[in-house]
Amino acid sequence: MLETYPINIWINEERFEKLKAANLADMAVDRLGGMKVIQVQCTEEQKDKILKHFPMAKFDTATTKSIELLPREVKDKIFDIAIKLKSIGPDVIDEFFKSLD
């Protein structure tokens, strides 16, 4: 199975309401001290593309092996696509890049 790398989208009340409304509250997992997160998975190729496209983002090699520090509006967009597709797989990121074209 191909290795994937998550984008952590942290869940505040507003995002949690959207998840509940879409019947997707189970998508959120407890990640750190009671913080809820959805983890949208990227393939290696998507990870590199994201990091190239958003130079302020960082791949946390030391601890979490996740893509961090994406702008909030980018994460909002990825979050909305995840809800629309009812998925947290690489298809979300494919759709996200299509929306940029």
Binding site: N8, I9, W10, I11, N12, L32, M35, K58, D60, A62, T63, T64, S66, E68, L69, L70, P71, R72, K75
Partner: peptide, 12 residues
């Protein structure tokens, strides 16, 4: 980095 990411997302 993860904590920065949480704050950046506007989450307390």
């Amino acid at each position: 980095t993860l904590i920065r990411s949480i704050i950046k997302d506007g989450v307390k």
